[in-house]
Simulated scan of single mutants.
Amino acid sequence: MELVCPAGTPASLHAAVDAGADVVYCGFRDATNARNFPGLNFSRDELRDAVRYAHKHDVHVYLACNTYPQAGIEYIWQAAIDDAVAIGVDAVILADIGLLRYARDRHPDARLHLSVQASASNEEAIKFYHREFAVRRVVLPRVLSLEEIRYLNHRIPVETEVFAFGGMCVMAEGRCSLSSYATGESPNMNGVCSPAAHVHYEERDDMTVSRLGDFTINIYDQNEKVGYPTLCKGRFRAMNKSGYLFEEPTSLDVTAILPELAEAGVTALKIEGRQRGKAYISQVVSAFRASLDRISQGQLTTRSSLSTLSEGQSDTTGAYRRSWQ
């Protein structure tokens, strides 16, 4: 299976390539990608240099242009597609059907992948994107079980890519309204969840309070590790109980089920984390490279060594095994 790895900066891209990535995905420094944070992403010249470096090491580069254009400024997204193709990326990752049509008409030879933000999770939807826009690969939402993925792979004419490690998203794969409600900015429209300009922390007695805009997201005692305040991972009081109402802090990690994913026909494994530093990228990519290499040598079981990098130092296989059913 192809190992698709994140890069939020040129340094992270180099780290991913050097650690054994088959593919690195990144975005331009604007609202066209869903990780539009200050200090992240690539200029046109940086992407050109990154593609040269990656290709020198037989590694592909995918450009994420996976947010939804706003009326009247569609040209920003169209320019991202044009420039990515001109630079020579190996695929463009898109979600919006208007952009898919633009890319297919303007660049008929470009390889197009369907972003997880399109939330295509059934046979009919995936075949539609393949038929209308010649999409070659779909990034599947994190709501499908192994059996459902296996079922799809026997019935669709495209490759499938699934998430393998990193943050979970309980909303419709990034199309979240909670962040927009609290800050006016959301992942799918502005490329940012819980923007840093709205984040602040307060010391209250022996507690640390994390806030997003006008909202208290969490209160930590002095022995707890303080997390970044995103609404879906906050602690709230509901029905006279306090706890993680939407999602507990935990990370997806499929190391234990890599052989099962391969057997289900998965083409590529996607590591989440373009906002992470190069040390994190290097450690995660190296661990997955080693696990995949062991499997290719016939060792069908492998253990994760990444628990210290997981949110809350806990991990899950998410919906793949659906242990709650």
Score class of each variant (00 low, 15 high):
R111F: 00
A110Y: 01
E161K: 03
Y75L: 10
H200T: 05
A86I: 13
S177W: 14
S180Y: 14
R104Q: 02
Q78P: 12
I93K: 11
V116N: 09
A125T: 11
I126W: 07
I87A: 11
E124G: 10
L144T: 02
W77R: 03
P108C: 01
E124Q: 15
N153L: 01
I97A: 11
L112H: 04
C169Q: 09
F128D: 11
Y75M: 04
I76D: 03
H107T: 00
E147F: 05
D82C: 08
M189W: 12
R101N: 03
H113C: 02
G167W: 00
I126D: 12
L112Q: 06
V116T: 13
H200Y: 13
M189T: 15
R101M: 07
A103R: 03
R150D: 07
H107S: 01
V138F: 01
M189D: 15
V89T: 04
I97F: 06
A110T: 04
W77I: 01
N122I: 10
I76H: 01
L212I: 07
G167S: 06
R136N: 01
S145K: 14
P141M: 00
D109C: 07
V92A: 05
S186D: 06
P187I: 01
A120G: 11
G191P: 15
R142A: 03
E185M: 11
V170N: 10
T208E: 14
G98L: 10
I87S: 12
G191Y: 08
R131G: 09
W77Y: 09
G174T: 02
L99R: 08
P141W: 00
D109N: 12
Y102N: 10
E148T: 08
V192E: 07
A71M: 08
Y151N: 06
R104E: 00
C176I: 04
E123Q: 15
A80R: 07
I76Y: 06
G191S: 10
G88L: 08
V199T: 04
M207W: 10
A172T: 15
A196Q: 15
A91W: 10
I73K: 12
L178T: 03
T208S: 12
